[in-house]
Design a binder for these strands. Structure first.
Length: 544
RNA sequence: GGGGGUGUAGCUCAAUCGGCCAGAGCGCCAGACUGUCGAUCUGGAGGUUGCGGGUUCGAGCCCCGUCACCCUCGCCA
C-alpha cells in the first residue's frame, strides 16, 4: 500500500493515523513495484497498491497480543480474546482444514449412499458410560434431559427403520475430566450400516480416511489398513492404540527369568505377575539421575519400580545386574534385541500394569529420543477387544465398548463360563498412537441383548425402564448392523500435526471446562431456577 | 480426587544467599527520519510480582492457605 506523501497530503495524513487491526477501505491502482522495491520474501512482494482514497471503517484498540502467526502467549489470554486469536493465520488454517475435512467426509459418504439423519441432542440420561450433562425440564418438574454422549441408540433404531446407511456430523457431550485431546463437547463423524460385517464398516471408513488424507494432506495411506488384535497390541506395545512409527517393542521376559534369584522379580512371578522388557537404543550411558526420573515416570502409572540394565560388550551392568545369571542376561538381550550401548528397561508387576507402564515409557522415550517422524502416517485397526472388563469399583462386569456390542460368534459359548475371555466384534481406528474412532457390530437379537444385560448386572426391570424402546424395536425385525464414530477434532489435529484439541475448536473450554471468553458456566437468576423447579444447594464458586 | 509444572509491565522473560528505586526485549505513546516493509534513531508512559495470611529489620524469592492456566493418573460404556 502506497500513500504518496507529496501529491496527496490529505491521504497521507489519514494513512499516518492507521494502526494495527484498523478496518479500512482503500481504493487505488494495483501496480508492479518499481525495480529495487521488490520484496520476494512476501507473497505480495512484487506488487503494490497506489491508494487514491482511504477510509477508516473502524478503529481498533491495541490488541492484548500481536496478531501474528508465531506467538508465545498464555493460553488464558488466547482463550479470553479468542476472536483475536482466531485472526491469526495458523488458527484460520486450522478451522479451514476442519471445514474441508467435513466437506470431504460428507461428499464421500453421500456418494456411498449414506443418508444424513439428525438425532436428538437432548435425550434420556443413560446409565453407565460417560457422565451426562443434564438439562432440567420446565414442563416436567423434577425431571431432566441428558445431553447426548453419542447417538448410539438412535442410530441403531434408524437401522430398524430401514435407513441402511446413516451418517451424521454430530456434537457429543461428556461430563468427564479434560485432556489435551479431550473437550466436554466434541464432534463425531458417526455412521451405521445394516447387513454388514465388521470388514464392511472398516472398508468404507478406510475409503473416507484415505480420501481425506489424499485430498487434504497429499498423503497416500496404504490400503487396506493393517490390523492387530487387542491382545497383540497390549503385548507388543503396552497400549490398545499403538504408535507404529517407531520400534522399541515390549517383550515378555517372564519365561526367561522363571528361575531368577532377583527377589523382586521372583515374588512378582510367584504372584502371577509378569516381567516386561524393552530396549532403549543408545541409552546405555544414562546416569543414575536419568534412570531415576524414568522410574518416577513409570511409577506414575502405578508400577512399583523400573529395572535399568546397561548393555555392555560382555554382560549387563547396573545396580541389579548381579542378580541375573549369564544365561538370564543373554536371554534378556536376545528377547529385546539389545546391542552394546543400549539400555534395557524392565517392569515386573501385574501383567497389564507392567505392559501399560512400560508402554507409556516407550512413548516417552521415543519422544525424548526424537524417534517420532512427524510426517509419517501409520493407520491401524485394533480388533478383537474383550467384550467385558472387570470393574473393581463396581465389583462387576462392565461393557468395555458399550452394552450393545456383539460378542464374536466363536466366543458365544464362553459367555457364561469365561466372560472375560469373550472377544467383541469391535474395532478401533488408531493413527500414530491416537484413537481416531471406534465401533462395533451390534447385537440385533433381543435374546442376546437380554443376556448381555443380565451379565452386566442390569436387571430386567432396569433394562425395561431404560431401554424398553430398544428392546421393543428389536422385536420388529432388526437387521444385523454395525457402525463406527470418528473423532472429527482429533482427525483435524492429526491432519495438521497438532497436539491440542483446543487449536482445532473455535471456542474451546479450559481444563476445568470453563469458557474464558463468555464466562460459562455461570449462575442463573432465582426466577429461572424457580421455573425449572431446581434448588441450588452449593454456593457458587468464589471468583479468582 | 491424586501427581507435576506455571503465574513478575499489554506480551515474552530476567532479578545472585532473602538486601539499594523490581529490569530487558517486543508492543504502546510522542518526536525525528524513511521506497524494503518485524524499519531505524531519540524520548516517554506503563507494576497490588495471581490473591490472602505468616516468618523476618527487610519477601518476587522462605512457610501456610487459596485461585487460575497447562500436562498427567484415575475417569472418558
Amino acid at each position: 500500500m502506497v500513500f504518496a506523501a507529496d501529491r496527496q497530503s490529505d491521504l497521507h495524513k489519514i494513512a499516518e493515523g492507521l494502526r494495527p487491526e484498523f478496518v479500512i477501505a482503500v481504493r487505488g491502482h494495483v501496480r508492479r513495484r518499481p525495480e529495487g522495491s521488490l520484496n520476494l520474501k512476501m507473497p505480495t512482494g512484487e506488487i503494490e497498491v497506489e491508494a487514491s482514497s482511504v477510509e477508516i471503517l473502524n478503529e481498533a484498540k491495541t490488541p492484548p497480543f500481536e496478531i501474528v502467526a508465531d506467538i508465545n502467549v498464555n493460553e488464558d489470554s488466547r482463550l479470553k480474546y479468542r476472536y483475536l486469536d482466531l485472526r491469526r493465520p495458523p488458527m484460520q488454517r486450522n478451522l479451514v482444514t476442519r471445514h474441508k475435512l467435513i466437506q470431504v467426509f460428507r461428499e464421500y459418504f453421500d456418494r456411498n449412499g449414506f443418508v444424513d439423519v439428525e438425532t436428538p441432542t437432548m435425550t434420556r440420561s443413560t446409565p453407565g458410560g460417560a457422565r451426562n450433562y443434564l438439562v432440567p425440564s420446565r414442563v416436567w418438574p423434577g425431571t431432566f434431559y441428558g445431553l447426548s454422549e453419542s447417538p448410539q441408540i438412535f442410530k441403531q433404531l434408524l437401522m430398524v427403520s430401514g435407513f441402511d446407511r446413516y451418517f451424521q456430523v454430530v456434537k457429543c457431550f461428556r461430563d468427564e475430566d479434560l485432556r489435551a485431546d479431550r473437550q466436554p463437547e466434541f464432534t463425531q463423524f458417526d455412521l451405521e450400516m445394516s447387513f454388514v460385517q465388521a470388514d464392511d464398516v472398516m472398508d468404507v471408513v478406510e475409503g473416507g480416511v484415505e480420501e481425506a488424507f489424499g485430498k487434504l494432506r497429499g498423503v497416500k495411506l496404504p490400503r487396506p489398513f493393517p490390523r492387530m488384535s487387542y491382545a497383540e497390541a497390549m503385548a507388543r506395545f503396552g497400549t490398545d492404540k499403538p504408535d507404529l512409527r517407531y520400534g522399541m517393542e515390549l517383550s515378555d521376559v517372564s519365561g526367561a527369568l522363571k528361575e531368577t534369584g532377583f527377589r523382586v522379580v521372583k515374588e512378582v512371578l510367584a504372584a502371577g505377575g509378569a516381567v516386561k522388557a524393552m530396549c532403549a537404543p543408545g541409552c546405555g550411558g544414562y546416569s543414575r539421575k536419568e534412570t531415576d526420573a524414568l522410574t518416577t515416570f513409570v511409577q506414575g502409572y502405578g508400577a512399583k519400580g523400573l529395572v535399568p540394565l546397561k548393555v555392555e560388550a560382555e554382560a549387563l551392568a547396573g545396580q541389579t545386574a548381579k542378580f541375573f545369571s549369564p544365561a538370564e542376561q543373554a536371554a534378556l538381550r536376545a528377547a529385546v534385541g539389545a546391542q552394546e550401548g543400549d539400555m534395557i528397561f524392565m517392569v515386573a508387576d501385574a501383567s497389564d500394569l507392567a505392559a501399560q507402564s512400560l508402554g507409556a515409557l516407550r512413548m516417552h522415550l521415543a519422544e525424548k529420543l526424537g524417534m517420532v517422524k512427524a510426517d509419517e502416517y501409520r493407520p491401524l485397526w485394533v480388533v478383537d477387544f474383550p467384550l467385558f472388563e472387570f470393574s473393581k469399583e463396581e465389583n462387576a462386569l462392565v461393557a468395555r465398548h458399550h452394552p450393545f456390542t456383539s460378542p464374536k460368534d466363536e466366543d458365544l459359548a464362553l459367555l457364561d463360563s469365561k466372560p472375560l475371555s469373550v472377544r467383541a466384534k469391535a474395532y478401533d481406528l488408531v493413527l500414530n498412537g491416537v484413537e481416531l474412532g471406534g465401533g462395533s457390530i451390534r447385537i440385533h437379537r433381543q435374546e442376546l441383548q437380554r443376556k448381555m444385560f443380565t451379565l452386566l448386572g442390569i436387571s430386567d426391570e432396569e433394562a425395561r425402564s431404560k431401554f424398553s424402546f430398544l428392546l421393543d424395536a428389536f422385536e420388529f425385525g432388526a437387521p444385523p448392523h454395525g457402525g463406527i464414530a470418528l473423532g472429527v477434532d482429533r482427525f483435524v489435529m492429526l491432519l495438521l500435526g497438532l497436539d491440542h484439541i483446543r487449536d482445532v475448536i473455535a471456542f474451546p473450554k479450559t481444563q476445568k471446562a470453563m469458557c474464558l471468553m463468555t464466562g460459562a458456566p455461570g449462575t442463573v437468576t432465582p426466577r429461572q431456577l424457580q421455573e425449572l423447579n431446581v434448588r441450588v444447594v452449593a454456593p457458587p464458586p468464589k471468583p479468582a
